[in-house]
Structures are given as C-alpha cells and as structure tokens.
Amino acid sequence: MALENDGANEVNEQTMCMCGRIAAMRTAWTENNPGRRFLGCSYYGRPDACDYFKWVDPSLLHPRYKSVMNGLLRNANREGVLEKEWKRTVLYHRIVLAIVVLVAVLVHYVL
C-alpha cells in the first residue's frame, strides 16, 4: 500500500503515478536526503516507467540530522566492505588449509 503525505499530514492510499500504476514507496539514500521517503513509479528504471515523483517525508530541516545520517551510512558501508574482506580472507585460508592437507595426504601415500 502506497502512502502519500501532501504537506498537511494527510495520508492518501493508492496514490497513482502518471502512467496509471500504483506508486511505490522508496527511500532516498543521497547525501542531501538520507533516509527520506518518496513515492515514485513502480516501474522506475524500466523503459515504460513514467517520471512520477513526490516526497512523502518533509525536508530534513536540521543539518545535523543529515550529517549524522550520512556518517552512519558511511560506517555501515565500511562495515559491509570489511565483512566482505573478512569472508574472502576466511575462504582463502580454508582453501590453503585444504591444499596443505591434500598435499600431506598425497605425500603420505606416495612415500
């Protein structure tokens, strides 16, 4: 169910985009609007999508909010990168260990 805030804190259900589809609720993660929700065409990114766009949340009035949100997003992204690197390192070590064990078994049976 799509919701729309038309500035007067009134919420409408089933907001339609310009191509006649129910608009999809999305969240902006840009530097200027981190975490701010908006309605857009549910076919966004497809050739048959319209350009419907309407903010649901009010503008971020306090610059500190943007700063804190962007800092949290950077930390979350950094943690995601570190987690991927950790998983890659663990996989690498498992592969190396498997090769060492395989070589040790082969050496044991050959000699």
Rank of each mutant, 00 (worst) to 15 (best):
R88V: 11
N33V: 05
L39C: 05
R37T: 02
D51Q: 12
P34E: 01
S42H: 09
K54I: 06
G80A: 00
P58M: 06
F53T: 06
L39Y: 04
A2C: 07
E83C: 10
R36W: 01
M25Q: 13
D51A: 14
V105Y: 00
W29I: 08
Q14W: 13
S42E: 09
G45N: 07
K54E: 09
C41N: 00
E10S: 15
N5A: 00
V107W: 13
Y43G: 11
D48A: 15
V56F: 13
Y65Q: 15
H108A: 11
W86G: 07
S67Y: 07
W29T: 10
G20V: 01
A2V: 01
C19D: 02
E13S: 10
K54L: 02
E10F: 12
K84I: 01
I22T: 12
K66C: 15
S59Q: 12
I22N: 06
D6S: 04
N12R: 08
T89D: 03
A76M: 09
V107A: 15
L61I: 10
K87H: 05
Y44W: 09
Y65S: 09
L111R: 11
C41P: 00
N70Y: 06
R88M: 08
P58H: 10
V107L: 08
W86L: 14
L73K: 04
L61H: 09
H108I: 06
P63G: 00
Y44K: 13
R46S: 13
C50N: 02
N70C: 04
V96D: 09
A8F: 14
L60M: 08
L97F: 02
